[in-house]
Lab assay of single mutants.
Amino acid sequence: MQFKLIINGKTLKGEITIEAVDAAEAEKFFKQYANDNGIDGEWTYDDATKTFTVTE
């Protein structure tokens, strides 16, 4: 399945899409990606669109 991350950071904005087995695997990848890029904010997930959003 495809999952999307929308980044609304103070210094980094954009979107990335990955293939993952389930939402838990996608969330783990996205949170590591955000951590690696210094993004720390509020997370939301929309199951209907398979979209995670992080907002700083």
Rank of each mutant, 00 (worst) to 15 (best):
A24C: 03
A20P: 03
E25H: 10
I6L: 13
A26W: 00
Y45G: 01
K28W: 07
K4G: 08
V54F: 06
K13N: 13
T53C: 03
K10S: 12
N8L: 09
D40G: 08
E15N: 13
A26Q: 00
E42L: 10
T44R: 14
G38T: 14
K50P: 01
T17Q: 06
I16M: 09
K31N: 08
Q2L: 12
A48W: 15
F52N: 00
F29G: 05
I18S: 05
T51H: 09
T44G: 06
G38V: 10
I18N: 07
E25P: 04
F30W: 02
Q32H: 14
I7P: 01
L12G: 04
E42N: 03
K50F: 09
K28V: 04
D22F: 11
A20T: 13
D46R: 05
T17F: 10
D22T: 04
D40S: 06
I39D: 01
E56K: 08
I16A: 09
I6R: 10
E42R: 12
I16P: 01
V21K: 14
V54P: 00
K10E: 03
F29L: 06
A48P: 08
T11E: 04
L5G: 02
A34F: 02
K28C: 02
D22P: 02
I16Y: 06
K13F: 06
K4V: 07
D36K: 13
I18V: 06
T17S: 15
T53K: 13
A34H: 01
I39G: 01
I6H: 14
A23C: 06
L12T: 14
A24G: 10
I16Q: 04
T51Y: 12
E15W: 10
I6C: 06
E42W: 15
T53M: 15
K31M: 10
T44N: 13
L12K: 11
T44C: 03
E42V: 11
Q2H: 12
N37D: 03
V21N: 10
A24M: 08
E56H: 15
F3N: 00
T49R: 10
T11I: 05
W43V: 04
V21A: 05
E19S: 08
K31F: 07
Q2W: 14
E25T: 15
F52A: 01
A23Q: 13
F52S: 01
G14L: 06
I18F: 11
I6P: 00
V54A: 11
F29H: 06
N8K: 05
T11L: 06
D40Q: 15
G14V: 09
T51V: 13
G9S: 04
T49H: 07
M1L: 09
E19V: 02
Q32E: 03
D22H: 05
A23F: 13
T55E: 05
D40C: 11
A34T: 15
Y33T: 04
D22Q: 13
N37W: 11
K13R: 08
Y33S: 03
G14R: 13
E42T: 13
V54T: 06
K13S: 11
V21S: 12
K28Y: 13
K10W: 04
T53I: 04
T51M: 11
K50H: 11
G14N: 07
E56M: 07
E19H: 11
I39T: 04
K10I: 09
Q32N: 10
D47H: 09
D46L: 14
T11R: 03
A24P: 05
A20H: 05
K13W: 04
Q2Y: 06
G38I: 14
F3Y: 15
E27F: 14
N37Q: 13
A26Y: 00
K50E: 03
Q32P: 02
Y45K: 02
T51E: 04
K31D: 02
E56W: 14
E27N: 09
I16V: 03
D22K: 03
T17R: 08
K4N: 08
N37K: 13
I39R: 01
E15A: 10
I6N: 09
E25Q: 15
T11D: 05
T44H: 14
N37G: 09
G9K: 13
K31Y: 10
I7Q: 02
A26R: 00
A34V: 06
A48Y: 05
F30Q: 00
A48R: 03
I16G: 03
T51S: 07
D47K: 09
F3T: 01
E19A: 05
A20N: 09
W43F: 09
G9P: 05
T11Y: 11
K28N: 10
F3P: 00
A26H: 00
E19Y: 04
E15H: 09
T44L: 10
E27V: 15
T11Q: 08
A24R: 02
A24F: 09
I18Q: 13
A48M: 06
T11A: 04
F30N: 00
D36A: 12
A34D: 00
A34W: 03
D46N: 12
N8H: 14
A48L: 12
K31T: 04
T49G: 09
F52Y: 15
A48F: 13
Y45L: 03
K4L: 05
K28D: 03
T11W: 05
N8Y: 12
E15P: 04
D40N: 13
A26C: 02
D47E: 15
A26L: 00
G14F: 12
W43K: 00
D22N: 08
G41H: 01
E15D: 15
N35Y: 11
F52K: 00
T55N: 11
L5N: 01
D46Y: 12
N35P: 02
W43I: 15
N37T: 11
K10C: 04
N35D: 12
D36G: 14
I16S: 08
K28I: 06
I16E: 04
T53Q: 11
K28G: 06
I6T: 11
E56V: 08
G38A: 09
I18W: 10
A34R: 02
E42I: 09
K4Q: 03
G41K: 01
G9W: 13
E27H: 11
E25K: 05
Y33G: 01
A26V: 05
V21E: 05
D40A: 12
N8A: 07
E27M: 10
N35W: 11
T55K: 15
K13G: 09
T17M: 12
E25F: 04
E27C: 10
Q2R: 11
D36H: 15
A20E: 10
W43A: 01
T44W: 08
E42A: 15
D40I: 11
I6M: 13
T51Q: 05
T17L: 07
T17Y: 12
D46C: 03
Q2E: 11
G38K: 14
E19K: 03
K10L: 05
L12R: 06
F52Q: 00
E15F: 09
F52V: 01
Y45A: 02
D22G: 11
A48N: 13
F30V: 09
E25L: 08
T51W: 06
G9I: 09
D40Y: 13
E25R: 03
L5M: 04
Q2N: 15
A20Y: 11
I6A: 11
K28E: 12
D47N: 14
N8S: 13
M1R: 10
T55W: 15
K50S: 09
I6D: 03
T55G: 04
K13Q: 04
F29E: 05
I18H: 08
N37H: 09
N37C: 02
L12D: 07
L12N: 06
I18T: 13
T17C: 02
T11N: 07
V21L: 15
F29A: 05
A26K: 00
Q2V: 14
E42C: 08
L12C: 04
D36N: 11
T51D: 02
T17H: 14
D22R: 03
K10D: 03
F30R: 00
F29N: 04
E56Y: 13
K50M: 02
M1S: 04
K31P: 00
N8W: 10
Y33H: 09
V21G: 10
Q32C: 02
V21F: 08
E56R: 08
W43Q: 01
T44D: 05
E19L: 14
A24W: 14
Y45F: 04
I18C: 03
T49W: 07
I16H: 05
F3V: 02
